[in-house]
Nucleic acid binder design. Structure first.
Lengths: 187, 187
DNA sequence: TTGATCTTTGGACGTTCGTCCTGAATAATT
DNA sequence: AATTATTCAGGACGAACGTCCAAAGATCAA
């Protein structure tokens, strides 16, 4: 198959970018992780940013697949499913940071094109959240709610990563559940 | 004076680490910013992590000086002063991320020693917050409140940096003020 | 002024990295 | 089976970086 090795490169880079970040991951590292020589990577990807682009797209695909997995559920259930997803990633976040937020943070200090591409991941999640909140709130409030929940997720990931303590994510997500219940029940 | 140039190196590195991150800032960059040759930097600092250590210490000194500037005020006023400080840094955060959180995030992917040192900055702020909340809450609740407020600050910085939009910080800090008022007024 | 110490210069050195290139191996097609 | 296209191996190359050093320059006490 033609794209099997290409996929292997992308998933290997996905792992390494999350674990060590984009800058500190060399193409040689990716080649090792993928079990091939770096010369072969050049066959599939001309440049390193090109790899990054595919990694971001792959990450987006995975996230959106998870978010849209169960289309029939209620808005609060859908939002809670994202909270559960974050909770289940708490240990990984404590070890390596949020794979979305930390990538966006690092790339934000590179050129503009990469920042925008990484930020797109956050925008997608936020847009999805806005859609869910729109089903139980008026549009302006829904936008604020989406932004607030995403803030809690990203902030707790930063703190958990800094402290190396997954509990911080779980505590803030518990806080988020409680806040969500208040939002659902209305004023 | 002997330490004038050394201080210049530290403050130059402080600026550049915040703007471009630690990894993407070369010693040559620091030398340029400080107006000297990189060979001279080696006279003051043997290695790059050594520069980082001084930068972190300098950042800590600046933050703690701000936090402890007005010792006579009430706990809510002190906490609000930190919120104002974050709000006034909203534009910088949108441009380069939170100088504390993004450094901790990046260094968390390096070796353990650097992660711990950068995390110390966050711990200091959190400890200060816990002390303030302890004056109006019981200790366990004070710890949770400190963690929650710091989560909001770090999370809004991540989102603001990703979007390049300082409004996000201001909105979440407005949210934090409201939350703080509820905490102050008790159950 | 002389000598000793501190500071600065400019570049050398080895390493790592991203990228590119040539030829070999493999797969596909006729 | 022969030919062509695709895929892979291995290394070459220059650029950038952290570190180190020897000598020149500046500062200051005796």
């Amino acid at each position: 198959m033609s794209s099997s090795n290409r996929d292997c490169i992308v998933t290997s880079a996905l792992r390494l970018f999350a674990r060590r970040g984009y800058t500190r991951t060399s193409i040689g590292d990716i080649a090792d992780e993928a079990g091939m020589l770096k010369g072969n990577i050049a066959y599939y990807f001309k440049t390193k940013p090109e790899i990054l682009a595919s990694v971001i797209d792959e990450r987006r695909r995975r996230i959106m697949a998870r978010l849209n997995a169960d289309a029939g559920e209620s808005a609060p259930d859908a939002i809670k499913r994202l909270i559960v997803l974050v909770e289940s990633s708490a240990d990984e976040m404590a070890r390596t940071g949020c794979p979305v937020g930390s990538l966006a943070g690092e790339l934000g200090k590179h050129d503009e094109a990469l920042r925008a591409r990484a930020a797109g991941l956050l925008v997608d999640i936020q847009t999805w959240l806005e859609q869910q909140f729109s089903r139980i709130q008026t549009p302006p409030a829904a936008q604020a709610s989406a932004e607030h929940l995403l803030t809690l997720m990203q902030g707790s990931a930063v703190l958990a990563h800094a402290h190396g303590d997954a509990h911080i994510v779980r505590k803030q997500m518990a806080h988020a559940r409680q806040w969500l219940d208040e939002v659902v029940q209305g004023p």
